[in-house]
């Protein structure tokens, strides 16, 4: 089980950075550039790990990125990778969808604690924007999750995944999928919902004081975490995957859509994004819920 979990984390780390590299490349192509090499994000994180020193604001600041990392890793370990496989399941038999939904909030919490303790007002501004956005962001995703849990009469991710042999939930519950997908775009931190770190508005937002190894950990955890989110979407709506190749294909499709949408849209303000999320995707998902 230990090795299994380690393999899950390692895979998520590699794929997360690879996808982030792809994201930079694809956006570069959208802009008409060549873009950096695929491994550029990986180089960045190694470089940050190798900085001679990193600014530290005390033990809570030190612990903040670690809590973020815990959030990402625990979320990942409670989501099985493959459908009907004995490997790469992590601890998923000990958890369920509700737990995963709550573990997903741990990362913003660790972030908030670490950043709050450094006393930089820009960081906290970013955090408040993030938590405000969370009000709207979680609503459609929760509705979709509730719909799936009621339809499958189980909150076990494995059960929801295997129950899709006749048709993917994305097609049997299309409205739920649309609602969840819009809030998934927000969870990935892409435009138009990237209000948190908006550099033109709040300096660098939450990352303002992160440097050296702390920033490296924050980057690594966001790589792992975004892969965990992709995995969750694939498991809930696209029927999971039988093999790693299928998994990569499915996550890549989702990722590609997120990147392309992110490149096309401008940023909402915080209030706009909450209002949009509470109106449009929530409305769609609620209608979908009524069908369930």
């Amino acid at each position: 089980m230990f090795l299994d979990s380690l393999a899950m984390i390692a895979l998520a780390y590699i794929f997360g950075f690879l996808y982030y590299g792809l994201y930079r490349n694809i956006s570069a192509r959208v802009h008409g550039r060549f873009g950096p090499s695929l491994a550029q994000s990986f180089f960045d994180s190694i470089k940050l790990f190798l900085k001679e020193n990193s600014t530290n604001f005390g033990w809570m600041f030190y612990a903040g990125p670690i809590i973020m990392m815990i959030g990402a890793i625990t979320t990942l370990l409670f989501i099985p990778y493959l459908n009907g496989s004995e490997h790469l399941v992590g601890l998923s038999q000990y958890g369920n969808l509700i737990l995963v939904l709550y573990l997903m909030v741990l990362e913003p919490l660790g972030n908030a604690m670490g950043i709050g303790s450094n006393g930089n007002p820009f960081g906290v501004m970013g955090i408040t924007r993030g938590l405000t956005r969370l009000i709207g962001l979680e609503l459609p995703f929760y509705i979709a999750a509730i719909g799936l849990m009621i339809a499958n009469h189980s909150a076990d991710i494995g059960v929801i995944m295997t129950n899709q042999s006749e048709g993917y939930n994305a097609f049997t519950h299309p409205l739920l999928f649309i609602g969840a997908f819009i809030s998934f775009l927000g969870f990935m931190g892409k435009s138009p919902f990237d209000v948190v770190g908006a550099p033109q508005e709040v300096y660098s937002g939450p990352a303002t004081e992160f440097s050296g190894k702390f920033f490296a950990i924050a980057l690594s955890q966001s790589a792992i975490f975004s892969f965990a989110k992709l995995l969750l979407m694939v498991n809930l709506f696209l029927g999971g995957a039988q093999s790693l190749v299928e998994l990569v294909a499915k996550t890549f499709v989702l990722f590609l859509v997120a990147v392309l949408v992110g490149n096309v849209y401008a940023r909402f303000t915080t209030a706009q994004s909450v209002e949009f999320l509470v109106r449009v995707p929530t409305g769609i998902a609620l209608v979908g819920l009524l069908f369930v």
Partner: peptide, 17 residues
């Protein structure tokens, strides 16, 4: 397109090289 060389802009001195 200087991003080819691995050069990116950041907003805060803490992360800058």
């Amino acid at each position: 397109d200087i991003e080819r060389l691995g050069v990116v802009g950041v907003a805060t001195p803490r992360q800058a090289d």
